[in-house]
């Protein structure tokens, strides 16, 4: 700014003094914008100090970390950090931390694993988290299933409820993309006459309460068409993916209307396979978790949804 105060706007041309603000004691810059004036307060030192401090912080960061672009390359920083490598390293630390208990699940000796309470105390909460993030969307948070998705906390199984059976189901899925997936299809019986369909539907609907007429025409139809998969009298238990029709476990619904839909369209539920997303040990831990879920439930009535 001009060194001669007398030339400054707003200054008294004789003394060079400008209007002094009575509150702060500072003079004004002499401007007046529709009544707004500005004080000529000296630069606050603290602002400069803060600026210096943040600049120092930044310069240090630029030296240590990747920071400035150089056309086709950039400065790598003396620490040579790479965010992806750092994340992987941290993941490796976590894997090491887990290794103590998780690696034991690589050996699927479920009885031995199950008998170690200290191990279970670590593994089951971890398995629960895996279950909640991966399985609960379909099977419910407590394994209660839902329309189209089987209950897991009961004692009825499509493919077997022993931990090793469950582990295999998890590895390969059911009707999934895995080359060795478990495969099960309820064929469509749309070729049946309407009458027959409704008789069979009523018959199957009555099965659960044991009220189905074993001598009717529907029983014959059932024996000829269905028993191969669902067992004599629909008792199931063949562990071929076809459910028993006399127990409490129901996937899609066992009222006559739903059974009719099942018969008309067939069913082929899909359970994804997990061997790409979860490690063998994690899958074994989950299998044990699911098996224990059902053990704990004992004979809880199933079909109840969460």
């Amino acid at each position: 700014m001009s060194t001669d105060p007398k030339t400054l706007p707003g200054a008294d041309p004789h003394t060079g003094n400008r209007e002094i603000d009575p509150v702060t004691g500072y003079d004004t810059t002499g401007h007046d914008w529709g009544g707004i004036k500005e004080l000529n307060t000296p630069f606050p030192k603290v602002a400069l100090a803060a600026l210096a401090l943040t600049v120092i912080y930044s310069v240090i960061a630029w030296i240590l970390l990747p920071a400035w672009p150089l056309g086709r390359d950039y400065t790598r920083g003396v620490l040579g950090l790479d965010q992806q490598a750092m994340a992987e390293a941290r993941l490796r630390n976590l894997t090491d931390l887990r290794a103590g208990w998780l690696n034991r699940f690589e050996d699927p000796d479920f009885a031995a694993l199950s008998d170690d309470p200290a191990l279970m105390a670590l593994a089951m909460p971890a398995a629960d988290r895996l279950f909640q993030d991966n399985c609960s969307a379909c099977h419910g948070r407590a394994g209660g299933g839902g329309p189209g998705f089987p209950v897991l906390h009961d004692t009825y199984w499509l493919w077997g409820g022993a931990p090793q059976d469950i582990a295999l189901t998890l590895q390969v899925g059911i009707n999934a993309d895995h080359p060795e997936t478990r495969w099960a299809q309820m064929p469509a019986f749309d070729w049946m006459a309407d009458e027959e369909l409704s008789e069979v539907s009523d018959y199957v609907a009555a099965m659960r309460s044991g009220e189905a007429d074993p001598d009717g025409a529907a029983a014959t139809l059932f024996a000829e068409n269905c028993a191969a998969c669902h067992g004599e009298g629909g008792v199931g238990g063949l562990m071929n993916g076809a459910p028993s029709l006399v127990d409490d476990a129901v996937i899609y619904g066992q009222d006559a209307d739903t059974v009719m839909t099942t018969l008309l369209n067939g069913r082929q539920g899909l359970m994804p396979y997990w061997s790409d997303r979860l490690s063998d040990a994690e899958i074994n831990a989950l299998a044990l978790y699911v098996a224990r879920m059902s053990d704990a439930a004992g004979s809880t009535p199933s079909g109840a949804t969460e």
């Binding site: 602002a47 600026l51 943040t54 930044s58 960061a61 672009p69 950039y74 965010q83």
Partner: peptide, 28 residues
């Protein structure tokens, strides 16, 4: 931490910190 290269993140971080000073200067 996204797929944006680390160097741009460092610049964004440091300039945001320096930005505090002029911001507080106007608030102050």
């Amino acid at each position: 931490y996204t797929a944006l290269p680390y160097w741009v993140q460092t610049l964004g971080m440091t300039f945001s910190v320096m930005l505090l000073v002029p911001s507080w200067a106007s608030a102050g």
